[in-house]
Amino acid sequence: MPLIRKAALLPAQTGGLDWQVEVSRLQAGSADERRAAARALAAEPRAVPALAAALNEPADARLREAIFTSLATQDNAASFAVMLCHLRADDAELRCLALDAMKLMPQQAASHLPSLLGDTDPDIRLSACELARQMPPETAAPLLAARLTSEPQVNVCAAAIEVLAEIGRPAELPSLGACAARFPAEFFLNFSVEAAADQIRARAG
């Protein structure tokens, strides 16, 4: 003893962020530099277009996750718009990362949830149900219930029912019943409705 060496810290970094230098690093640095730049740009709203552009390039998943975290940290309309765009991407990994990041921005997500649930693309409506899972029940549950009364795609209905099973209240029970009635031949859906209704009733006591 002592067998263990006392460590030393590096000097503190001083000076503010030069966001344009960080954008250059994001565009042309090594993998580590690009990730570090993406993370540093979380503090710079003017960097949203550069972060969005970097998502369009072939990139490793770690850079993409850093970019999405930075956009979520910014938590503004511009950064959420980038995620909305990538929710329609052909690349499944990009879609999932965008959806995960949208869950980190509950206020932005809440304001877009009605339009996402009414989107013409059933895949977007499906993602919107997943997004609703993270939101306050009083915001999300009535929107999901309303969707159930007119949604033509059984898979979207099933996704909404699954979320309502977690967050729904007795007020949503009639919409669940109406959905089951619209798809009498879909035994799985009817079973899901019954299970969700049981969960809601159990929570309500």
Partner: peptide, 25 residues
């Protein structure tokens, strides 16, 4: 014991502060 205490460095950090975290290498 003193030898063991001398072997560990204690220093404050906020795990959410990237620049602070980088000081530690």
């Amino acid at each position: 014991i003193g030898d063991l205490r001398d072997s560990v460095l204690f220093a404050p950090v906020n795990a959410l502060e990237t620049l602070e975290m980088r000081r530690f290498g």
